[in-house]
């Protein structure tokens, strides 16, 4: 509810409305906006003259019934435009998330248990580089690199042949072939920082009295780390899971814009820029819902891993 109100306010914030934007676009692109006659009539029809609260009520009551309104720019039902894109966004995001955790946790553990060894320094340095590269730069560079060196055009999610073709194994393979660049680019920032956090946490935990006690009991270091320390050190990581979702979604948006992927990112940016309010509003709501669900899953996972929280 609160989210929906904030979403709606956000999309209403900019001055002017879609039609002003459309006029601007047509004029900038072609020097003429006469193809968009009857501006006032359109404004009336889209209900852009109604007061804010009324528009909100109309929008939200439609939203809960699954009627998201009509996109001005595409002149289609929002419903028709978004599901594919949400699916691809999920594929990329989940892929990046899996990539992030699979790579980051072992490296973090390794780094922490080898503190100040050269391998730790190397990994630390690598993770810093990973954290420091702006995603959009990496995305474009990788794309150009792949094209120039290997002569494979890797933009989009499918090659020209499979675009629009029905789903087959070949098409799935083609998708995976194109997926690795966005997954790595989106995941790399998260991986690096997650690794740092894992290392930090584990070092913290390794300094704790109960770990010392375990050591004092004469347990082997490997057992101390895996049995006692890692489990505790992973807890905050799981609560981070929820927190890292917005970053991943934003990251996938930026990378998709650069690579021209059919995810939510480019269409959201565009709809916000063009004040295509119902499309933008629906997308923001959907992304927010995704994040809420993600957080919920993270909370459940945390309670599942750490019994102490369950006892509340």
């Amino acid at each position: 509810m609160a989210i929906s109100i904030i979403s709606f306010i956000i999309i209403q914030l900019p001055q002017g409305d879609y039609l002003d934007r459309e006029i601007q676009r047509l004029e900038e692109e072609f020097g003429d906006s006469s193809s968009l006659a009857q501006v006032e009539e359109l404004r009336e029809r889209y209900g852009l003259n109604a007061p804010l609260w009324k528009r909100y009520l109309i929008w939200i009551s439609g939203f809960v019934r699954g009627n998201f309104g009509e996109s001005f720019e595409y002149k289609r039902e929002v419903d028709e435009l978004i599901w594919d894109r949400i699916a691809f966004t999920l594929i990329i995001s989940v892929g990046s998330l899996i990539f992030t955790y699979i790579v980051a946790i072992p490296l973090g553990i390794y780094s922490a248990t080898h503190q100040y060894k050269w391998s730790d320094h190397f990994l630390t340095f690598l993770s810093f580089v990973g954290m420091s590269i702006p995603a959009f730069l990496l995305a474009l560079s990788l794309m150009v690199f792949a094209f120039e060196i290997f002569d494979v055009p890797l933009f989009g999610l499918f090659s020209a042949y499979y675009e629009g073709a029905p789903w087959t194994w070949g098409k799935l393979g083609d998708l995976f072939k194109h997926l690795w660049i966005p997954v790595i680019v989106v995941g790399i920032n998260g991986t690096a920082s997650l690794m740092r956090i894992m290392r930090g946490n584990l070092l913290d935990v390794l300094g704790q009295p109960f770990v010392q006690t375990a050591r004092a009991k004469g347990l082997k270091e490997i057992v101390v780390v895996s049995k006692h320390a890692v489990r505790i050190a992973i807890n905050p990581l799981i609560s981070i899971l929820g927190m890292s979702l917005p970053g991943i979604l934003s990251g996938s948006a930026i990378v998709s814009i650069v690579l021209g992927l059919p995810t939510v990112g480019p269409i959201l940016l565009n709809s916000l820029l063009n004040e295509d309010i119902y499309l933008a509003g629906t997308l923001i709501m959907m992304l927010s819902l995704l994040l809420v669900i993600g957080n919920l899953i993270a909370d459940i996972a945390l309670a599942w891993v750490d019994p102490r929280i369950r006892y509340e």
Partner: peptide, 10 residues
């Protein structure tokens, strides 16, 4: 910002 440009123009 935004549609301000075209509003200012028209």
């Amino acid at each position: 910002p935004g549609a301000e440009l075209s509003l200012r123009r028209t």
